[in-house]
């Protein structure tokens, strides 16, 4: 292999590596939908399952898909927010993938079938049309976070705040003490962090501005 081919191979390997480790879910499109007399959100997703998530699911422990949804006036003011969580579990003994949403439970024979279903997220009916004024324009925003095993793993701030609660008994020879301790550096670095997104989170994605009268079923 000559030097040029080696360079290309190394570059290719580096690109592949960064692609694998940097894989984050992507929200390709977001739009509102009319469900009866209520409004829901639908979106198309890509790269939902990083290798780490696939490994976790295939080993038999769950993965969670968290959908954070917001409704904004076109000017930017947020008027509603909601969250939905899907749980994915592979039963090693029945060899079935199970997807549990707020409303239902679905079973899939293959991972690709499950992945295909998850790519087209539909929130179900969320908002009454009374939220909307006919002449005003709105936007919906969605962020999806894929977490291995437990939702707690995306709640770093909560854990920093609650770290003080890990109580310990003092030795009985000492005066009884109840105390707390806060790691200020950790709090500061959490709020000042340049890392804008938590692990496994997509960028926020926004729909085009719409009027309530323009939403199709």
């Amino acid at each position: 292999m000559n030097a040029r081919a080696k360079t290309i191979a190394i570059l290719f390997l580096l690109m592949t590596r960064s692609a694998v480790f940097a894989q984050k879910p992507q929200v390709q499109s977001v739009s509102p939908i009319k469900i009866g007399d209520r409004i829901g959100i639908t979106c198309n997703l890509n790269d939902l399952f990083a290798p780490k998530i696939v490994g976790t699911i295939k080993s038999g422990l769950p993965a969670l898909l968290n959908f954070d949804m917001r409704l904004h006036e076109e000017a930017g003011k947020e008027i509603w927010r909601g969250e939905q969580s899907w749980k994915i579990l592979y039963d090693l003994w029945t060899e079935k993938y199970r997807l549990r949403t707020n409303a239902e439970e679905k079973f899939f024979d293959s991972f690709s079938g499950l992945e295909e279903f998850c790519r087209r997220f539909q929130s179900g009916s969320l908002l009454s049309q009374t939220y909307f004024q006919r002449d005003k324009k709105y936007r919906v925003r969605v962020q999806v976070i894929v977490i291995p095993i437990n939702s707690r793993q995306k709640e770093q701030l909560r854990d920093i705040l609650e770290a003080s609660e890990s109580g310990q008994e003092s030795n009985p020879t000492e005066s009884r003490r109840n105390s707390f301790s806060v790691n200020i550096s950790q709090l500061i670095s959490f709020f000042m962090s340049s890392k804008s997104l938590p692990e496994g989170a997509s960028e926020w994605s926004e729909s085009a501005a719409f009027r309530i009268t323009e939403i199709s079923p």
Binding site: G55, S59, P148, Q153
Partner: peptide, 26 residues
């Protein structure tokens, strides 16, 4: 998952790490 959650919190509480993530593979 409950055991993983407990251990995730235990490792964060050590303050040795800025971030801890548990995952698994077959």
């Amino acid at each position: 998952p409950e055991i993983i959650e407990e251990n995730y919190q235990r490792l964060l509480a050590t303050n040795f790490f800025k971030e801890v993530i548990f995952s698994t593979r077959p």
